[in-house]
Each structure stands twice: as C-alpha cells, then as structure tokens.
Design a protein around this nucleic acid. Structure first.
Lengths: 235, 235
DNA sequence: TCCTGTATTATTGTATACAATCGTGTGGAA
DNA sequence: TTCCACACGATTGTATACAATAATACAGGA
C-alpha cells in the first residue's frame, strides 16, 4: 500500500533522486534491463553522474513500486512479471475500473467530461489514420482521466499503479495488434454511459473493457513473448 | 504501485533502516504522531540513535506506503486519513476481498484450511470469554490467511496494504463494540463456503463481510472520532 | 581430486561533511 | 504603519568517507 501520497511529491522530477527514480523506472518499464538483472548503486550513479545517496533512495522507492527487489546486503534486482501476475492484475483491475467508472459517473466534472470527449474524438481520428503510437498515448490518457474523475485518491492511486505496472506489456499489445481502434470504441461507450449518468452501465462496460483487453493480449500471445525464459540467476 | 516485492525484504528488520522503518510505521499506526505532524530527520535519528541516512531511506518507504507525505526541500508529514478515504478503502476492499475468497476457494491448501478452522474455533472461544484483544488479533489473522490462500501475490499484497492502512481505525472498532463475535460468525460462514468449494458464495460472503464491517464502524461513530479536527498546519 | 579455511575484493550499510533551499525575523525606506 | 530586502538559522539534498557484509579465489591438507 505503500503509496497513497500524491505521486507528484513522490516522484519529484527536480531532485537528483527524482531524476534517478524516473530514469530507472522508465528504463525498467521500457525493457532496458533484463528481468532479474542486478542494479549496482555505483554503476547507476556514475551513469547518471550522481553519488550513491540519491540512487539508494530511488532504489527504496522502486522497491515499493514493485519494479525492483532489494535483498539486504546483497543487491537490487529487477523484478519479473509472470504471466500469472499479469492475469491477476487484469482481474483486479477489471473490478476496480468498474468501480472507478461508477464513481466517475457520479463525480466527473465538466472539464473532465470535455477532455474525455476530446480524447475519444481524437483517438477516432488517429485510429482512422492508423497512428498507433498516438492511439496508445490517448488510450493511457483516457484511463487517467477516468481515474481522476472518480474523485477518490485511494482508488486513483491504486489504478495508476496497476496501469503503470502492466505498461510494458500493454504498450506492445496496443501498437502491435488491432486492439487500438477496438479499445477506443469501448471507451466511447463508457463515456456515453457516464455522460448519460448510467453508473451501472458504466461499471459494467469498464469492467468488460478490461477483460477484453486481457483476452486480446492473451490471444495475441504477446505476454507469452514477454515472459522470457527464466534466466538461472544462481550463477 | 509501489510495492509488489516481498514484504520480507522490503521491511528487513535487521538493518538500521529497517528498524527505523518499522518503528516509525508502528508509531504512526498506533497514533503516536498527530496527523500532519512534521517528522524531522535529525530528531527521529537521535531518538533512535542513528544518523540521517537510514532515516531518510525509511522516509522514502513510508511515503510510498502512504503513511507520510514528503514535500521536497520542506519536510515529511504524517498523512491524514479522511472519512472518505476510509469509506473508499472499504468499498475497494469489499470487491477485492470477494475476489480473494473466490480464488482462495480454488487454491487453498490443506494447512491453510486447517489454520483457518482453528482460527474460527479459537475466536469462538475468546468471543465467549469476552477477550476482545485476542479476538481482534484473530480477526486480523483470519484475513491474512485468506490473503495467503488466494495464491496471488499481487492481490495478497494489495489487500495487506489496505488492511494495514485502516488498522488504526479498525482496531478501535473491534475492541469497542460488539462487532468481534459477529465478525467471527461471518468468518465461519466464509470458511464453510470455501471448504464446500462454493466460490460464488465465498465471494459474496466476503464481499458482504467488508460492507458489514464498514457499516458497523460508521454506526458506532468511531471513525468520526478518529477523524480529528484538521489542525491548521500553516503555523 | 576434493574439501576447507582464509585472504582479498567488491558491494552494500551507515555516518558525517558540505551544499542548497526554505522560513523567519529584523531593519530600513516609503 | 506597511512593505520589501537581506541575513541568519533550521532543515533537507547530496557527496564522500568509513564500516560491515558477502562473494570469490586461492592455498593447503586430507
């Protein structure tokens, strides 16, 4: 649970520790490091031109974010996500996204509603043009809007965490197969339900949206590809 | 989401940082510090006989655990839990505990089943004797067993976080009103459903169990008492 | 050959020194 | 009186030095 405080503070971009934290997270999420790869404090520090102190603090944060695992007096290792982890997360998310959509229906503001409509509209445009990268970006943003609109910092935080956690898997999924346009169609339906004030429907649609996303991912087989063979780490 | 790694590593008890982390967490959860109270690195360090370094690292962890909020270049402050936060958590938990019970039905081991039965049996005994403290302890343990039995480190982690997060509220609730025995009766029903292999029923019962716990807490008015008046912190 | 103990090295854990930042209070000018 | 500038102190941010721990390699003996 680690982590209900405002991300803005937790991930301050303007301190060395913040920079290290962000860079390492991006690197891990983008797959720069192998799973179970060891991260050495001095190496990271030298690479970024900082001392061990901010690196160590960033490590502590990354550990609680679940991206690395620290074994005392030994080292920090990039955590692996198993196939089952991904499945579990999507199951959990499907419930929570449903709840989120329900609450969003009750609490969404004018501005948020507008941004959501704009998002869907823009995504439709890019879908037509086949701009997969922008589509993925807008997809992420749609969910962020939804999280913010639910007006619960607890739920928002949980969902953002999960969302980010599966990003490395999801990014590939969206840009590789034809899920993008399909996903946006579902966004549109969710949006309409929220606009109509139908909380039950919004919940149901958001719930199903997650299940569809997972099913698509499994079908495409990409998360299997992601799940690399376990590298024996006992060297 | 900070924090999918194994709690065991994350909260290592045998390093100074680990000790600081545990002590601060216990102190915050037990209410030693006021909400929004500032925690100063040197003060905490002197109190525990350590330097600022392990204190700072513990702070980073506590921040991601949501127990404190760090404002860059300013300070670390104990986070407050609002009435709405507690409500939101219970809503979220009600969904996830349901899912957990479902999965536990499918994955629980012999030993876990036995411990669960023992737990319920023992709790029944203490309920008869009016041992509220032991009852609260067993109540916590029941849920931990359930979390472990679901065989999903993702879900287990989430639920343990939430569980801990509301502990300061829940502890009082259980020991002050007559929820203890009632709670255990519900545990027994959940246990029976799991034993019978009825995942749907287990999910439904666990879901309702959380809602009841929340309703009871609201009725007893204790979480309002917990919600102290906001102390103006702009000094 | 194989085991074992030890020395060496690499790495993490902690303490301390220094730098940067924020808040406060004081003093002077309008 | 009120406002602003500046200096001082307190606190956090970072770098570095030192301590403790773990991994490795090597030497010696069974």
């Amino acid at each position: 649970m680690k982590n209900f405080s405002d991300k803005q503070e937790a991930t301050d971009k303007y301190s060395l520790r913040g920079r290290v934290f962000h860079k390492l997270r991006d690197d891990i999420l983008s797959g720069k490091y192998e799973e179970h790869e060891e991260l050495k404090e001095v190496a990271i520090g030298e690479e970024m031109g900082v001392s061990r102190t901010p690196v160590r603090e960033a490590f502590r944060q990354l550990e609680l974010e679940g991206l690395i695992q620290i074994i005392p007096n030994k080292g920090a290792y990039v955590t692996g996500i198993t196939e089952k982890d991904v499945k579990d997360i999507y199951m959990i998310r499907s419930l929570l996204e449903g709840l989120c959509a329900r609450w969003a229906t009750q609490h969404i503001t004018e501005e948020q509603m507008e941004e959501m409509e704009e998002n869907v509209y823009l995504a439709k445009f890019h879908a037509g043009k086949g701009h997969l990268e922008q589509l993925a970006e807008l997809d992420n943003r749609f969910h962020d809007i939804l999280y913010e609109a639910c007006d619960s910092k607890m739920l928002e935080h949980q969902l953002k965490d999960f969302h980010q956690y599966v990003l490395r898997v999801r990014k590939k999924t969206l840009s590789n197969v034809n899920r993008g346009p399909k996903s946006n169609e579902e966004h549109e339906k969710i949006m309409e339900a929220i606009k109509a004030g139908d909380a039950d429907l919004a919940e149901q649609l958001a719930h199903q949206h997650m299940i569809n996303a997972y099913d698509n991912m499994v079908k495409s087989g990409l998360h299997e590809a992601y799940e690399r063979k376990e590298r024996r780490s006992e060297k």
